[in-house]
Nucleic acid binder design. Structure first.
Lengths: 241, 241
DNA sequence: GACGATATGAATGTCAGACAATTAAATGTC
DNA sequence: GACATTTAATTGTCTGACATTCATATCGTC
């Protein structure tokens, strides 16, 4: 967690000890940790140090603290929403900080997204198909900003992965899709390219409706290739400016 | 990040402000934050509060701190290893805390893993194929503990996803595969089931070598079905004990 | 006895000030 | 110029205090 060259601080050590206990299942959801004063005594450190350790754990949503009598630090139930938020933050930063080519990121994202098509075609619901159509309508709005277009694009793809009816799958794929958003926001979508993308979105919905996995896969592959082309255009424009 | 019912603490607010600045790119890798005292003055809080905020960010590997003159808090370069470690922690806890059926988790994992087969068959290297064969040898060792068998199984599948030659894809898939390990550790692998699994691993390697995507996909599908069967056997045994 | 207002106590949240430990740079010495 | 020493900046930790929150117990009134 911390630079291995510097010896870990006391607060880091205490946080690690508690984190290990949680991951190993020695502390269960809902359990209450000892009070900060007790923890301080147990570990032979000051309360301030214990508090720093607890804040580290809170940042990972491992614990939640409540004030007042019989308050304290409780082992948190990690919800899908919290887990997804963390995964998106981590993945977004990873993509932003590692000079990853747009093409590699895109290739990974669409490879992952294709993993849901078979289940999605099998299990898609009318409600989710309606959501996807509604997002397509949004994307067709005139004078839509590029950011809004991207946001709707993300919502469309999240609905697509949700069609697979597997929360765990949705969690992983949502991380992969949303982490791409900052990269996608670099692209300026012309009316021409928007029309192209919307057509492919229509093909995806239609394919899901007919439970035609192959046609969904084809549309996604075309979308991937087209997105990479758009990305390369942007990069070329940047290089020559 | 924190319970929305309770108003966020000052340290949480300060951490959020800095986190947003990092994610938005207003703070770049290597940038140094003001010293704790300066941050305390700027935000009108005590140093202890600032420190709690910084520990939250450190827990997410967003910053790294160095002591001494001209030390301080620096925006951290998020490496693949750090990102993967965090993703694994989050995903493991998500699976452990949400009463997810073994079947759903397994379905998600293998769906995701299949997303790399096409690229893997195309790009597999001799080195990675050798790694996979070596893990198969490990798995064939007599008197191997179930934990060691699982660990080797994870290493095998990580080599498989690495074959795709896409770091971003490896990052996402490693999270999905490794997070399953605690669930897999609940299974006791008989000599019979080990032999079955090893046969399928051999089929995967052979398929990659021949660049035969379909046969790799088939082997993975069989492995998925077999793993789910094993999991159900365990659950039944638990239910009746 | 019932019920509402109040006190109590335990816990987290925050603060102020101090000291220790660490480290790069400035300074001094040969 | 090379090397040892001092210095200053910064994080890490400790102490003790007070503010805030909140469930429970207590008390007073009817």
């Amino acid at each position: 967690m911390e630079n291995p060259k510097t010896p870990p601080s006391l607060s880091a050590k205490i946080a690690d000890a508690i984190r290990t206990a949680i991951v190993d299942g020695r502390l269960l959801v809902g359990d209450r940790l000892p009070s900060e004063s007790e923890l301080a005594d147990n570990h032979g450190v000051s309360r301030a140090t214990v508090r720093e350790a607890l804040k580290r754990l809170a940042a990972q949503s491992l614990i939640r603290t409540e004030r007042g009598a019989f308050g304290g630090a409780f082992i948190n139930h990690l919800s899908y929403a919290e887990a997804r938020a963390q995964q998106v933050t981590t993945s977004t930063l990873l993509l932003g900080m590692n000079a990853i080519s747009f093409q590699v990121a895109c290739e990974a994202r669409y490879a992952l997204e294709r993993s849901c098509t078979s289940l999605a075609a099998e299990r898609r619901t009318d409600a989710l198909l309606a959501t996807m159509r509604s997002e397509i309508d949004s994307q067709s709005t005139r004078d839509l900003s590029d950011e809004a277009f991207c946001a709707s694009d993300v919502a469309f793809h999240r609905a697509l992965v949700d069609c697979a009816g597997n929360e765990v799958l949705s969690y992983h794929l949502a991380g992969s899709v949303e982490a791409m958003q900052p990269l996608m926001n670099m692209i300026t979508f012309t009316a021409r390219s928007r029309a192209e993308i919307i057509d492919l979105h229509r093909a995806i919905v239609s394919g899901l409706e007919r439970r035609d996995v192959a046609s969904v896969d084809r549309a996604l592959a075309t979308l991937e290739a087209y997105t990479i082309t758009l990305g390369q255009t942007v990069l070329k424009a940047r290089a020559t400016r």
